[in-house]
Design a protein around this nucleic acid. Sequence first.
DNA 1: ATTCTAAATAGGAATAATTCTTATTTACTG
DNA 2: CAGTAAATAAGAATTATTCCTATTTAGAAT
Lengths: 149, 149
Amino acid sequence: MNSNTYQNTKELIATAGLKATHPRIAVLHELLTNEEHPTAEQVHTALQPNNPSVSLGSVYRILEKLVEVGLARPVASRNGLKRYDARTDSHSHIYAVNTEEIQDYYDEELNDLIKGYFDKKKISNFKITEVKLQINGEKADPDKKVTIV
Amino acid sequence: MNSNTYQNTKELIATAGLKATHPRIAVLHELLTNEEHPTAEQVHTALQPNNPSVSLGSVYRILEKLVEVGLARPVASRNGLKRYDARTDSHSHIYAVNTEEIQDYYDEELNDLIKGYFDKKKISNFKITEVKLQINGEKADPDKKVTIV
DNA sequence: ATTCTAAATAGGAATAATTCTTATTTACTG
DNA sequence: CAGTAAATAAGAATTATTCCTATTTAGAAT
Ligand SMILES: [Mn+2]
Ligand SMILES: [Mn+2]
Ligand SMILES: [Zn+2]
Ligand SMILES: [Zn+2]
């Protein structure tokens, strides 16, 4: 789908106008690879094996910078932890309350449905940038995957 | 709309099977009154004038307890702060990125639309408890209210 | 109304999460 | 291959939240 090599990630960063440092490449690469909408801490942990020199403080700082330049987005979460997403297109999230997993969800039909609705309804003094769904529920078997059928 | 006296709040707590202590009544009353989906700290600050004896630690503990018994709900937020809501019915949120304000949104038509959609779509290994919208955007004039027209 | 008691609280200590500071390193520029 | 501004590592500091425990309190039982 998305060719996600080191080189490719490096270019994404450079194209965004940032110095393509090794810590930045490592963090963005991890975020692009990791589907779990991780916290800074989780990204840092994931980097340990191959990039043990990247500090936790840098991961925090880099994630914020990636958001700033549009290469990542903050994910709304209800437990007081900051989580991040490398998907920057508008999409929805399936949130499993029991496992705290957040999974992407996108469907064109749903998108059109909501878009159609908000073309009619008007909210004054507010400029909508995005409408997304938060699908809350419980993962039946926590060990198995959630799949859209 | 919702008669929200001290006495009424007290009954809500008692009916939920909790000891109706003064700190609990004060916290829930504030949460019912405050439309801003406040943090524990904000609730505590709001209580200062009339209930200075309620400690911050208690506010944290009480809010979690209210969630536990279904008198309050956690609100998804993207800045790493826990925010709470006394509205326990399923409703959506308008989130102003610039002011970090969260405002309720509910519309029957929208509700039906989404319900209809998810009656068809099936997600396996997942039990949906609720689908809500996160309407993100910017408040044009931060000093004025956002209104649904 | 008074006593009893389990549960809840205040206050402060402890921990977890995040940001800040600064000396050193590094990626780009020429 | 310098030179330089920007970024980083490491650890200190701050902020957010939870935990601990002596004291208080709401409600139940006299
Ligand atoms: Mn936190
Ligand atoms: Mn936090
Ligand atoms: Zn996502
Ligand atoms: Zn709400």
